[in-house]
Amino acid sequence: MSDLAAKRGAVPAAKKALFLVFHIGDERYALRATEVAEVLPRLLLKPIAHAPQWVAGIFAHRGAMVPVIDLSALAFGKPAQVRTSTRLVLVNYQPEPWLQARWLGLILEQATDTLRCDLGEFKPYGLDNRAAPYLGPVREDALGLMQWIGVNELLTDEVRALLFSAEQSL
């Protein structure tokens, strides 16, 4: 059998994906790198009056107003610690396929590492956490468990309407 024929009959390798790894407290989380638009240093933000506590504010970036949420405050009610490794990560937020993707800023602690792994290494954790639909499957490695965060599930309809009031369909 030729090498080409052997390659065609081979089982395809599992697809490896790149993730941005960050922390909330001592726990590790991951965002799929394809959802990340840019990683910026933490910036000064304009607060939004009457917004939930975890809405950190807005800032202007390349001609667009970008809302920012503090993921630590969203998940656990405590703002992210101010560290040199705390980043403002711009993600492409598109909760519905017919809506135009928008930038959403996330304040993330220790957002300085990446991980390349098979998508299948993340497994369901067995809890139907409807209050936090953004909490995805978990992956175990030598450092413990890491949870995948679903960007498009981060905001409730009410908060999305507050932050993206000018949303238009394609």
Rank of each mutant, 00 (worst) to 15 (best):
L88E: 11
D128V: 05
E140Y: 08
S2R: 05
R32Q: 15
K15I: 05
N92S: 06
D128H: 07
L154R: 10
A60E: 12
M146I: 10
A142L: 03
V91A: 10
A75G: 13
L163S: 00
E96K: 06
V11T: 09
E109R: 13
A30L: 00
G144V: 01
N129S: 07
G25S: 09
E35T: 12
H23C: 05
R28H: 03
Q168C: 04
L90P: 01
A13R: 09
L162P: 01
T156V: 08
F19Q: 04
H23V: 04
V66G: 08
T86R: 03
V39W: 02
A51C: 01
S165G: 15
L143K: 11
G150M: 14
P97A: 06
I48F: 09
T34F: 11
V36E: 05
I58P: 02
D70Y: 14
P95T: 09
V89I: 02
D26N: 13
A60C: 11
R83C: 12
L145A: 06
N152Y: 14
R28Q: 01
V151W: 12
A14Q: 07
L4E: 05
A13S: 15
G25I: 15
R87E: 01
L155H: 15
A161Q: 10
H50V: 09
T156E: 01
A161E: 09
T112M: 11
R160V: 07
L143W: 03
I24D: 00
T112A: 08
I149F: 11
P41D: 11
L88D: 04
A64V: 04
I24Y: 02
A10K: 08
L106F: 11
K16H: 14
L88S: 10
P97R: 02
E140V: 04
L18S: 07
V66P: 02
D26H: 10
V36Y: 10
T156S: 11
G136L: 05
E27F: 14
K15S: 15
S2H: 10
L4T: 08
I69E: 05
Q94P: 11
L170M: 08
A10I: 06
S169E: 12
L162K: 03
R160F: 12
E35R: 14
P137M: 10
A49S: 15
M146T: 07
G144H: 01
P79N: 11
R28W: 07
A80E: 12
A30D: 00
I24L: 13
R83L: 03
F164T: 15
V151L: 12
C117D: 12
R139D: 02
P133V: 15
R83K: 08
K15H: 05
L106D: 06
L115P: 03
E153P: 10
M1W: 06
V66R: 02
R8M: 02
A5V: 14
N129F: 06
P133E: 09
L45W: 12
